[in-house]
Design a protein around this nucleic acid. Structure first.
Length: 516
RNA sequence: GGCCCCAUCGUCUAGCGGUUAGGACGUGACCCUCUCAAGGCCAAAACACGGGUUCGAUUCCCGUUGGGGCUACCA
């Protein structure tokens, strides 16, 4: 037995976005390659020619780079076994198709779509498995010209065995056996001469010397026909691992980008979405489901999630280390990951838990890093970042995602731009009759606080409360609204100190002015 | 319809014949507290069902039920 070097791959098709389930599959492939000091290939499955590849590919490559899932060979970086774009390999595929036909393991077929459909429906009505009659098979060049003379267009179909079994071992499913008769004569070459996914896939995996084909369980049923082709072509078989699909919140259906409207009915998913939406709106970003959707990775980048949090959460969808370890860095995962601890059943996407990982990773970030993480959001909102470090420090764990810095927008604007929470303003400033008077008096106290820092301000307020014979609540809430416009926020004394004396005084003045 | 697969708290999971069925997220109570977070502490919460096998089944086998994937000239 020869021990081959591990080569894994992930092969997105250029759709313009990365599905969160794809991240999981790509990450498993990446981890496996890294763990075994192997090679991770990013190949582009663009056999379906209709789309603008370059444009649709950019966001995908960007997303993987953002996540840190770098590839050793493939799109943009090249490598010794290219091309890494299926659209550039049609000649190779056609050679392979010809070889399979020559061996008698595939045939030219001239059935029209309607004829196939009729057969298929007949089978379904008879409650039998569909098996093509091979009635329009062309066994010779003469047959082909005859069919073509009728105006028919030929495709190439696999001539699947109709007895025996296909048996293979899968690292997560175990031994898989399926009757060959179960397999349809799938088309491997379209009538326009272009190759289909299954064929291209087999040729590419061979050309790129992929040793481990690891993909989502949706592809499990593609495996027998791929094995059939590989054998027909005399290729060695790779090892297989089929991961369970990532399912919807609250169900076992495959998570799908298009069903966002349904997911939004799920409270937890909705909360995650709305949190992001608030940030996006503040920035004036478009929030169409194509670009702003928690099923798609971009969403998380746009609102300031941490790649390591996403990766850590996502790896746990179908894999676990043991009965208690959940927080693992990418480095630790690279050590710990193994195929034999991958589950067989689908795992639902849980927005709450993802968010919990995000909170945790964010809270671990040193202050300076958090500042740099939040700075782009302040800039994009068109705000000045002079007080950023102080605000980030004071906000501490309240900043869960980088975009949350925008909750403290009020610290980056001037007094006349403060936006008030009207309900709170009413409750704390208009309703209590003593509020304006107390505010005015306390403003006078603030004038002489020195130095103008949190502990001194707090001391001044304690004294003030004593002298006036009032409760803390009577002044604190009113003051918070007057100065920040909001009912909630981090420590009041820190807030006052960060704003500075002059700013506080003018904000109090403005709030008082609104009362009359 | 056909084929294949899956099944432990609401969710992610540990468990690989004998456990008070463990952890995490979330939820609830309490503590802390100038609000909001964070933190601390406690609690509630699961082996889908029916047959076997076995001294003993969450665990092994069969069936039922439920769920999922595939069934394209998509990938």
């Amino acid at each position: 037995m020869t021990r081959s070097v591990v080569r894994t791959r992930f092969a997105p098709s250029p759709t313009g976005y990365i599905h969160i389930g794809s991240v999981r599959t790509a990450f498993f492939n990446w981890l496996y390659a890294r763990k075994h000091q192997g090679t991770y290939v990013l190949r582009i499955d663009d056999t379906d020619q209709q789309r603008n590849v370059a444009e649709a590919l950019a966001p995908i490559l960007h997303g993987f780079r953002w996540l840190g899932l770098n590839w050793d060979e493939g799109a943009e970086v090249g490598g010794p076994y290219g091309p890494y774009y299926q659209s550039q390999k049609q000649p190779q595929y056609q050679d392979a198709v010809r070889a399979i036909v020559d061996k008698g393991l595939a045939y030219w077929d001239y059935a029209t779509e309607e004829e196939m459909k009729t057969e298929r429906q007949a089978a379904e009505q008879a409650k039998r498995q569909f098996q093509y009659s091979r009635r329009w098979i062309a066994e010779s060049a003469a047959d082909r010209s005859r069919f073509e003379a009728e105006g028919r267009r030929g495709v190439v179909r696999l001539k699947m065995p109709r007895e025996g079994k296909c048996v293979f071992d899968d690292h997560v499913r175990g031994r898989v056996e399926v009757d060959w008769a179960q397999e349809a004569d799938h088309v491997i070459q379209r009538s326009d001469g272009s190759a289909l996914y299954n064929l291209a896939n087999v040729v590419d995996d061979f050309d790129m010397k992929i040793t481990h084909v690891m993909r989502s369980a949706e592809h499990l049923s593609n495996t027998p026909r791929q094995i059939f082709m590989a054998q027909a072509l005399g290729y060695p078989l790779p090892e297989y691992a089929h991961f369970p699909v990532v399912a919807e919140p609250g169900s076992k259906n495959k998570l799908s980008k298009r069903k966002i409207a349904d997911y939004l009915k799920h409270p937890d998913f909705r909360k995650l979405y709305e949190h992001g939406e608030r940030i996006a709106k503040t920035l004036g970003m478009a929030t169409t489901p194509d670009t702003f959707n928690p099923v798609i990775v971009d969403f998380y980048e746009q609102v300031g999630y941490l790649p390591e949090a996403i990766l850590n959460y996502i790896v746990l969808l179908g894999w676990s280390l043991d009965d208690k370890t959940e927080f693992l860095t990418v480095r630790e995962l690279t050590e710990a990951f193994s195929l034999d601890r991958v589950n067989k059943s689908p795992a639902s996407f849980d927005a709450k838990k993802l968010f919990a990982f995000q909170e945790r990773y964010m809270s671990l970030k040193p202050l300076e890093e958090k500042v740099e993480l939040t700075r782009p959001f302040i800039k994009r909102a068109g705000l000045g970042d002079r007080k950023l470090a102080e605000v980030v420090a004071a906000a501490a764990d309240r900043i869960k995602v980088a975009g949350d810095i925008l909750d403290y927008e009020g610290f980056f604007v001037s007094a006349d731009q403060v936006v008030y929470d009207e309900a709170a303003f009413e409750k704390r400033l208009r309703v209590p009759p003593e509020a304006p008077g107390l505010l005015k008096k306390f403003a006078a106290v603030l004038v002489s606080v020195a130095p103008y820092e949190a502990p001194q301000i707090e001391k001044a307020l304690q004294d003030f409360v004593q002298v006036e014979g009032i409760g803390h609540a009577q002044i604190i809430h009113a003051l918070r609204i007057a100065v920040t416009g909001k009912a909630v926020g981090f420590g009041l004394f820190e807030s006052l100190a960060i704003l500075g004396r002059e700013e506080c005084l003018s904000r109090i003045e403005r709030a008082l002015a609104r009362l009359s």
